[in-house]
Write a protein that binds this DNA or RNA. Structure first.
Length: 1045
RNA sequence: GCCCGGAUGGUGGAAUUGGUAGACACGUUGGACUUAAAAUCCAAUGGCCAGCAAUGGCCGUGCGGGUUCAAGUCCCGCUCCGGGUACCA
């Protein structure tokens, strides 16, 4: 019978405490926040989670815990902290599930959100849940649609370097046409005011479309037939969809795009103003991909057309020996000579239909065709051939290049492959010109001296570039130009579960809905699939048209639409009249600290900055950059456990071989004997005997098969069932002995079929591990790398009769760090841990694991240490009968020193987001206070405030036990006092020639001379001086003393 | 290929500006308490060598060089691992 006794009673009851305080915070709205002009604001934001069906695993809350600690800390410092949470609720998984089951994605999403919320609530976050937003809520997406309309009604004026209303552009067109305009656009034709006025409405709309920041155009897209949708570049991985892994092909389609390229330079410049990791800024810089160079016009022989190329190296023009057009280039067909038409046609067709995947896997394959046409090199009038090749991309620059094989590795390879001349135009300083025919690779010289280059010969590269651009501009053959890699963002998805576009079509042209009609609600459909004619799911909706009967847009917006401006809506989430009020925006301004994963570096973090800059141009937001400081939290990886399943056939062969090798049975055997395509386990020529080890099932088949072979070759077979070896190896060896002696042995097979139970070998049984296959085992069945055998047998029916080979009665599992995933059985779910150890322990442990930003493996074992710490802390406040035991006495010097040392460390480390070392500091503090047997109120009270951001439930509970009301969350963070920490002496490490030899305690204010004297007189010094005079003594106050002998 | 990040005990990690390498914790081993277990507490714990012992010595932060009185930290050259990106003219 189980008799509970006193010592078994729970002293620290986390389950009760945590429930109590979570309820308290929620009922008292402790973390509800409103604009308060008396307090400074601080905005802490976590990246919007997509609520997946699997719920949270221990990796997800890492960033949330860190941001929660920081938020609570800032609140203790007196800031008015905005710390909201919401959901990026549109997403493919819910839609995919809808397609499969017919469940409306809203239902699935709602369910998942509920689960997320429950899990988050149990961790004790200080979110202001009154501000929660979710992207699929019409009250929210109304403003996503609203922003889209503003984008549609805007164009980018390069002269003012900002977005302006399209009305102003229409006015300008009426006054002076587009000749004087500097705009970010896709308009090529120049027209006058009169020409503009003569256009009909449709024509005018078509022109305007080339200027709008949200525009419709034919775009080469990543079309995924299996999903029936277009994917963004970052949703495609190696030619397959990132979600689902379906093949993706290139296709020309009419799509909405956002003219984000207009903001390329501002997005680049803005990086200088924000406090992000340099590496992340670098990722964005690369993505924006600014390159400076020149556009150069090449005339064509026999045509009036001009081919414009972009080059970063105009100085190498004299080395341009051919040109290359992208297969999609508009002039390809026109300039191809008659005799080459079929070849070029074939090539272009092949290249266009090549999937992204083929291109990637065949990067090094050089392909191309000569068009038969020639361009004229503008600097020297030389005729150079024009080729078509798919290494030139239609989407970058002008889709045409001048090729300088001597100084560009791709051009070099191409020229070599097709035997095109190579001319050197740059040489290294101090080196001589050499014959490019002898080169192995191009000389991609960013520095050097120009040669063979007309009037720039002798200049260095930098001067050459400048001089060439100047010459091109003077002769109207080109101009200096800056190019960006950043492409406009495709904004259409052929999907159901997304924001509908607030757009209708009249005469085939798109028009925005009136703002009063927003939100345009997502309609119901009978199926979540494209229509038979290939239209998006919204085409299935009944009456999908305006009041006037105009058809509405059937595409929906992509995932990043809703997440690009959510941080703004949090400022004023319930506002029915506008996105957010001016007052709210001017108070909260932008996000002070943004926490999230680094996978958003080129997606969300660029789109959101663009979105914000646009609203800034409109005058709606007061800060140009949305996220002042950003930290990427590292991923928590899984720690997989393995059991080792014995490959019995391998092992049995090994056992038999050990018994028969080296003539142990009197005759020579060979292993893995081959005869033609046949292979046998063991063969003895002497005995004319073949041994085969097999499972019963296979033996039956083989017996039949080998009979003719045995007769033909005059050999005998002995078939050995695995089961027999497992039962008794000696018996089997005896049978082999008999078989060797016997002269006439029929193919021997007569066994009832017996099942062999799976056998698992403990990792420390080293001699057997080589015969095993590792299998992932559920980490919940393993504790401290020791397998729970009973639980393992129940885990899967096929393991019910498993047998184990162990040492010391323990089954030791192996482990490896891998991605956390269901299939690897290494997913750790926070709920179980919180149940067992409590949210405070969980929070502390997630932080204790290591630096926030590094990737680190999850190891449940270590959580015990943090749990012990919390209970040890608890015991500072209570006696062994769990009665509060607090002394009102004055603290001692030592106690004050421990406290203030901790305050200093905790404050310091949190400011540099070093949460793991803060937890260590708490442990050291509690260890030291325990050693001092300290129970003084003046020490233990401030300690709780320090701890409260990290372990808020425990801190609240103890705070209230100490007699305080209400919440500890608003108590001022303690300051440390230098006087308590200050020491009078320091124990100097004394080294000789850099090697630590002994320690010496000296007063802090000692002079250099006195210190030197003290060292030389010190007890240990003589030994190391060995009678010699020291050459030099280095004395670094409060650090070290080093004697050089 | 290019760009970025990293490598410290059996494990996670600490060492903030070059100044006592391995804090704190896990694990392991031994001990105390207990009928027993759990919990708790105490001690040891980078490697090698010498010694009965206290103790002492040598080596040691991926590898090879360098700068310095002093290097995990700075410089040069590599190796390996992780991530991003991909014909960007």
């Amino acid at each position: 019978m189980h008799i509970p006794n006193k010592t078994q009673r729970m002293d620290y009851n986390h389950q009760e405490i945590e429930k109590k305080w979570q309820k308290y915070w929620s009922e008292n709205k402790t973390f509800h926040v409103e604009i308060d002009h008396k307090k400074p604001k601080y905005y802490v934001l976590d990246m919007f989670p997509y609520p997946s069906g699997a719920g949270l695993h221990v990796g997800h809350p890492l960033g949330y815990i860190a941001s929660d600690i920081y938020s609570r800390y800032k609140k203790h410092l007196g800031f008015n902290v905005l710390h909201p949470m919401g959901y990026d609720a549109y997403g493919l998984p819910a839609e995919q599930y809808a397609i499969q089951t017919g469940t409306h994605p809203a239902v699935t999403t709602e369910k998942n959100i509920k689960r997320y919320r429950e899990q988050m609530d149990r961790i004790g976050f200080s979110y202001d849940w009154d501000r929660q937003v979710q992207t699929c809520d019409p009250d929210y997406y109304k403003w996503t649609q609203w922003t889209f309309i503003q984008l549609f009604k805007s164009w980018y004026n390069k002269k003012t370097d900002k977005a302006e209303g399209i009305d102003k552009l229409i006015e300008l067109f009426g006054e002076e046409g587009n000749g004087n305009l500097e705009a970010a656009c896709s308009q090529e034709e120049v027209f006058s005011a009169d020409e503009w006025k003569q256009m009909n409405e449709k024509q005018q709309q078509e022109v305007l479309m080339n200027y709008r920041l949200a525009y419709l155009s034919n775009t080469m897209v990543n079309w995924c037939p299996a999903l029936g949708t277009v994917l963004a570049n970052d949703e495609v991985k190696d030619g397959f969809s990132e979600r689902g892994g379906h093949p993706v092909e290139r296709k020309l389609m009419k799509q909405w795009s956002l003219r984000i390229s207009a903001y390329a330079q501002r997005l680049l410049d803005g990086l200088e103003k924000i406090d992000w990791f340099e590496s992340l800024k670098e990722v964005q810089r690369n993505w924006i991909g600014r390159s400076e160079g020149a556009s150069v016009e090449f005339n064509l022989e026999g045509f009036d057309d001009v081919i414009v190329v972009f080059t970063t190296r105009p100085d190498t023009l004299w080395g341009a020996t051919f040109m290359v057009l992208a297969p999609e280039h508009e002039l390809v067909e026109k300039i191809t000579s008659e005799d080459r038409k079929s070849k070029i046609g074939k090539y272009v067709n092949w290249a266009k239909n090549r999937s992204e995947r083929d291109r990637i896997s065949e990067v090094n394959k050089i392909t191309g065709e000569f068009t038969g046409a020639y361009g004229i090199n503008p600097v020297n009038g030389k005729k150079i051939p024009i080729w078509v090749a798919d290494y030139v991309l239609s989407g970058y620059g002008t889709g045409a290049i001048m090729a300088v094989p001597a100084h560009d590795s791709r051009d070099f390879k191409f020229a070599r492959h097709f035997n095109i001349p190579i001319v050197q135009v740059v040489k290294k300083e101090g080196e001589e010109e050499s014959d490019p025919q002898t080169w192995d690779d191009s000389y991609d010289a960013k520095e050097g001296v120009m040669i063979n280059s007309g009037f720039i010969t002798g200049m260095n590269v930098e001067e050459g570039i400048k001089a060439t651009i100047k010459w091109l501009e003077e002769n109207e053959l080109g101009e200096g130009r800056i190019n960006y890699r950043l492409r406009d963002a495709i904004f259409s998805r052929q999907r159901y579960w997304g924001e509908p576009f607030p757009i209708y079509y009249k005469d085939g042209m798109p028009y925005p809905l009136d703002e009063s009609e927003l939100p345009l609600r997502l309609p119901d459909v009978d199926k979540y699939l494209p229509t038979e004619s290939g239209e998006p799911p919204l085409a299935r909706a009944k009456d999908w048209k305006t009041k006037e009967g105009y058809p509405l847009e059937t595409n929906t917006m992509p995932g990043f639409a809703g997440s690009s401006g959510y941080y703004l809506r949090y400022m004023d989430p319930k506002n029915q009249n506008e996105y957010f009020s001016k007052e709210a925006n001017e108070y909260w301004r932008n996000v002070d600290l943004y926490l999230g994963g680094d996978e958003h570096g080129t997606g969300h973090l660029i789109y959101a900055r663009f979105w914000n800059m646009f609203l800034y141009d409109l005058g709606r937001v007061c800060e140009e950059e949305p996220f002042k400081k950003l930290i990427n939290q590292g991923k928590i990886q899984g720690r997989s456990s393995f059991v080792y399943r014995l490959n019995y056939e391998k092992y049995a062969e090994h056992l038999i071989w050990e018994a028969i090798k080296d003539k142990k049975l009197g005759v020579e055997f060979v292993r893995d004997f081959k005869d033609g395509h046949r292979q046998f386990d063991f063969y003895s020529r002497e005995a004319g005997l073949i041994l085969e080890i097999k499972s019963q099932k296979n033996l039956e088949k083989l017996a039949h098969y080998y009979k003719p072979y045995a007769r033909e070759k005059n050999v005998r077979f002995l078939f050995i069932p695995l089961y027999d070896i497992k039962e008794n190896v000696d018996h089997v060896v005896n049978r082999i002995k008999e078989a060797i002696k016997a002269d006439d042995l029929e193919i021997n097979f007569e066994h009832e079929i017996k099942k062999i139970n799976p056998v698992f070998v403990s990792k420390d049984v080293k001699e057997l591990i080589q015969f095993t296959t590792p299998i992932h085992v559920d980490i919940n069945l393993v504790e401290n790398d020791i397998l729970n055998i009973e639980a393992f047998k129940k885990w899967r029916p096929e393991f019910a009769d498993a047998e184990f080979i162990m040492k010391d009665d323990k089954y030791v599992c192996g482990w490896e760090v891998e991605k956390m995933s269901k299939s690897k059985h290494n997913v750790q779910n926070p709920d179980e841990l919180i149940e067992k150890y409590g949210a405070d322990t969980f929070r502390l442990y997630e932080m204790f694991l290591g630096p926030l930003e590094t990737h680190k493996p999850w190891d449940t074992q270590g959580i015990e240490g943090v749990y012990r710490f919390i209970r040890k802390l608890w015991r500072l406040y209570f006696d062994k009968d769990n009665n509060l035991n607090i002394s009102e006495d004055q603290p001692t010097k030592d106690e004050l020193k421990v406290l203030h040392k901790t305050i200093q460390k905790v404050r310091n480390d949190i400011e540099r987001f070093s949460f793991n070392t803060v937890v260590s500091a708490f442990m050291i503090c509690v260890n030291e206070l325990t050693d001092l047997k300290c129970n003084k109120r003046d020490i233990l009270e401030p300690l709780l405030v320090l701890l409260s951001p990290y372990a808020p439930h425990t801190a609240e509970e103890l705070w209230s036990k100490l007699g305080h009301r209400p919440s500890i969350a608003i108590i001022a963070f303690p300051d440390y006092k230098e006087e308590y920490i200050k020491e009078n002496t320091f124990e100097y490490p004394v080294s000789f020639n850099g090697k630590l030899r002994f320690k010496l305690e000296l007063p802090l204010d000692i002079s250099k001379e006195d210190a030197e004297k003290a060292v030389l007189q010190a007890e240990g010094a003589q030994k190391w001086l060995a009678g010699k005079q020291p050459k030099k003594i280095i004395f670094v106050p409060k650090r070290i003393i080093n004697v050089v002998v």
